[in-house]
């Protein structure tokens, strides 16, 4: 059903929603990759001569396993902290797409698709921050 004439400027068409989503994904992935690159350069310049060893798993001892620690590491300009901050932004890029879709369909009064997006958003945020 076409939206009422006076509310038309407030309501997004599917094409406009697609355009915004494309922008979120494009800039989200580019900014994240740039931060990973900067972090990588800092990391390699400081630890490039250390021995690389990934044969044994000791990830459970890693200092960057929680969002707060990653933000702290990034603020202190630690190479690994910045890389992980870029990774976090990368993970948040699809989350941002779902958040925007929830909002866009809420405005469109498309309750079914608002609910579908909201469920996914809650699950994603719960998995990331719990």
């Amino acid at each position: 059903m076409p939206p009422l004439e006076e509310s038309k400027s407030e309501v997004w068409s599917e094409d406009e929603i697609e355009a915004v989503i494309a922008k979120i994904l494009k800039y989200g992935s580019r900014i994240s990759a740039a931060i990973v690159l900067v972090g990588g350069i800092i990391f390699l310049s400081r630890h490039g001569t250390a021995i690389a060893d990934y044969r044994e798993f000791h990830g459970h001892l890693s200092e960057y396993r929680e969002v707060f620690d990653i933000l702290k590491g990034a603020c202190e300009l630690h190479g690994r902290g910045l890389i992980m901050f870029g990774v976090l932004l990368l993970i948040l890029t699809p989350v941002a797409r779902v958040a925007f879709s929830t909002y866009a369909y809420a405005i469109k009064h498309d309750r079914a698709f608002m609910a579908l997006n909201l469920i996914v958003l809650v699950v994603l945020l719960y998995s990331l921050f719990s």
């Binding site: 990973v36 990391f43 990830g59 890693s62 929680e66 992980m84």
Partner: peptide, 12 residues
């Protein structure tokens, strides 16, 4: 992430 599967040095 919480389990430490994501290692910065390898992911980069």
């Amino acid at each position: 992430l919480t389990r430490g599967y994501i290692d910065a040095g390898l992911v980069m």
